[in-house]
């Protein structure tokens, strides 16, 4: 009975760990905004919400599969050729993804252009292979891959959405992805205030810089809050200790008197 219970407990703990691995990559360790990985595609393919989403899907696919394979072969490959082996695995999956995109979403393939083969040199994928998948089991590695890539996709969509909205005053769908219908999620009709510079290269740099600063500001705010709370706690403990000391002194004084 007791054994069964501990087994159950152990399993639950593992599940919690898996959940932590999954959510960690989305916000707290967001690959783009917090770790600054994968800048090149983040600038180049985010001229609209949909291209960002499409690129994110491809990265989810490549990162999950490469994490799974790297984790499977982690004990088979000698230490010396670890990094070249990862490059070969990643390049294989990128080739597969490129061919699939060309077949099923030609418009997306056209608009992402050379940035599909360039997924190979995306630091994010190599980093996960080297630092996570090479040390953990298959299931965890797959979960980590999905989580981290999802965080990357959300970041791309945030940037793409901002740029598209500022440039066109609307967020369109169905243009690049093979969706059954075309339209727009938001259409503010701000044709007078369109700022076309934001679809261009300069807009990409400026929008990413802006969002990075926003994330940094949040981080600094949280840090300050935490520090204040800790200071308050220390202050309280100090007061309590002083109080205790005084009481003790009074007691001993009373006892002696």
């Amino acid at each position: 009975m007791a054994q069964k219970q501990t087994a159950k407990k152990g399993k639950r703990k593992k599940d919690l760990h898996a959940l932590a691995v999954f959510t960690r990559g989305i916000i707290r360790e967001n690959s783009l905004f917090v770790l600054l990985l994968g800048m090149c595609p983040a600038l180049a393919v985010t001229s609209s919400l949909e291209t960002g989403f499409g690129m994110g899907l491809l990265v989810i696919f490549v990162l999950t599969l490469s994490n799974i394979v790297v984790s499977l072969i982690r004990k088979a490959i000698p230490e010396e050729i670890r990094i070249p082996a990862y490059i070969v695995v990643i390049a294989t999956f990128v080739t597969i993804v490129g061919l699939l995109t060309e077949a099923f979403a030609p418009a997306l393939h056209e608009s992402l252009g050379i940035f599909i083969p360039l997924i190979v040199v995306n630091c994010l994928i190599m980093e996960r292979a080297n630092n996570f998948a090479s040390k953990n089991n298959v299931v965890l590695s797959a979960i980590d891959g999905i989580g981290v890539a999802l965080g990357f996709m959300l970041a791309l969509m945030l940037i793409g959405g901002t740029r598209e909205f500022l440039a066109t005053g609307a967020l369109a769908y169905g243009v690049y992805l093979p969706l059954p219908l075309e339209g727009s999620i938001i259409n503010a009709g701000l044709t007078l205030f369109q700022m076309e510079v934001f679809v261009g290269p300069a807009g990409g740099f400026i929008v990413i810089g802006f969002w990075l600063a926003v994330f940094k500001a949040f981080e600094l705010y949280n840090k300050r809050k935490k520090k204040e709370a800790r200071d308050r706690w220390i202050e309280k403990k100090k007061k309590e200790a002083a109080e205790r000391k005084r009481r003790k002194a009074m007691e001993s004084a009373g006892g002696s008197a």
Binding site: G209, L212, A213
Partner: peptide
């Protein structure tokens, strides 16, 4: 403080 480092560099790159 929030703009220090990479964010301000990106704005400069944009310009």
């Amino acid at each position: 403080a929030a703009w220090k480092g990479i964010p301000i560099s990106l704005i400069v790159a944009g310009i």
